[in-house]
C-alpha cells in the first residue's frame, strides 16, 4: 500500500510539470490559442524549426546508411574494430561537444549548419549501429546462405533478403536517431555559429535567463508532442515485432 502511494507520487512528480506546461501553453487569462499563433508567426521560430528539421532528417539519413552498412558487415564477422562504436554512446555529451568545437576551431571550419550536422551524424552513427546490429545478429546465417545457393549474388542477397529483414531495426534506429538529433541541445550549442539556430537553442536562449514565457511554453509543448509521437511510433514498432 505504501509502495503504491509512493509509486503514484513518483509518477505524479514526473508528469505534473509536463502536464502543467501543456496547460499553461493554452492559458492567458483563460483558454486561448494565442500563444501558438504567436510562435507560428514568429520568423525566428519558423526558421529554427526548419533548421532543426533539416539537421534531424539529414543526419538520420546519413547515419542510417553508414550505421546499417557497418552493422551488416560486422554481423558477418566479429572484429575488434566493432568496439569503436560504443564510446560515442557512453561518453557524456559535453565532452564530445567540446571536442567537436576544438576540432572545428583547429581546422578553422566555419561554425554553423555544416558543423552542427557533422556533429549530429557522429553520435547518430553509433546509435544506429547498435540498434541495427542487434537486429542483424538475429538473422540466421542459413538464410543468407540459402539465398547464395539459390543463385543470388551478394548485392541481390543484400537488397532482397538482408535489407527487408533488417528493416524493423532500421526504422527503430531512424526514430532514435531523429529524436536524438531533433532535440539535441548541448552539441548543437557548442558547434553552432552565428545565424544558425535550432528550436532547442531558441528555448535555451530564453530559459537560461530564467524566463518562463507563454510563447516558449507553447513551443516547448509542440516539441513535447513531437517527442511523444516519435516514442509512440517506436513502441508500436517494437511491440509489433514481438
Amino acid at each position: 500500500m505504501i509502495l503504491k502511494i509512493l509509486t503514484v507520487a513518483v509518477f505524479a512528480f514526473l508528469y505534473v510539470p509536463i502536464i502543467y506546461l501543456v496547460f499553461s501553453s493554452f492559458y492567458d487569462d483563460g483558454f486561448t490559442f494565442r500563444n501558438y499563433e504567436a510562435i507560428l508567426n514568429d520568423r525566428n521560430v519558423t526558421t529554427a524549426f526548419f533548421n532543426s528539421l533539416n539537421v534531424a532528417i539529414l543526419s538520420t539519413l546519413i547515419s542510417v546508411i553508414l550505421g546499417t552498412l557497418a552493422a551488416y558487415s560486422f554481423k558477418k564477422r566479429g572484429h575488434f574494430l566493432e568496439s569503436l562504436f560504443y564510446p560515442p554512446i557512453v561518453i557524456p555529451e559535453i565532452t564530445e561537444a567540446v571536442a567537436l568545437l576544438l576540432f572545428f576551431k583547429m581546422l578553422e571550419f566555419p561554425l554553423g549548419y555544416y558543423s552542427v550536422l557533422t556533429g549530429h551524424i557522429a553520435f547518430n552513427v553509433a546509435f544506429v549501429y547498435v540498434v541495427v546490429y542487434a537486429r542483424a545478429s538475429s538473422i540466421e546465417k542459413s538464410i543468407e546462405e540459402a539465398s547464395y545457393t539459390l543463385g543470388a549474388n551478394e548485392f541481390q542477397t543484400f537488397t532482397k533478403v538482408v535489407l527487408p529483414l533488417l528493416m524493423p531495426g532500421i526504422v527503430a534506429a531512424s526514430l532514435i536517431a531523429f529524436t536524438l538529433s531533433w532535440d539535441n541541445f548541448i552539441k548543437t550549442a557548442f558547434t553552432t555559429g552565428p545565424g544558425f539556430n535550432t528550436l532547442p537553442l531558441l528555448i535555451w536562449s530564453q530559459a537560461a535567463r530564467g524566463v518562463v514565457s507563454p510563447s516558449i511554453n507553447a513551443l516547448a509543448s509542440l516539441m513535447l508532442l513531437i517527442s511523444i509521437v516519435l516514442s509512440y511510433l517506436y513502441v508500436r514498432i517494437s511491440i509489433r515485432e514481438e
Partner: peptide, 21 residues
C-alpha cells in the same frame, strides 16, 4: 512506458517544464 517516455524527451524540455512550476 511511462518510465521510458521521459527518455524520449530532452533534458532541456523536461527541465523547462519543471522550471515553470
Amino acid at each position: 512506458i511511462l518510465i521510458i517516455l521521459p527518455f524520449w524527451i530532452s533534458f532541456l524540455l523536461r527541465t523547462y517544464a519543471l522550471m515553470a512550476i
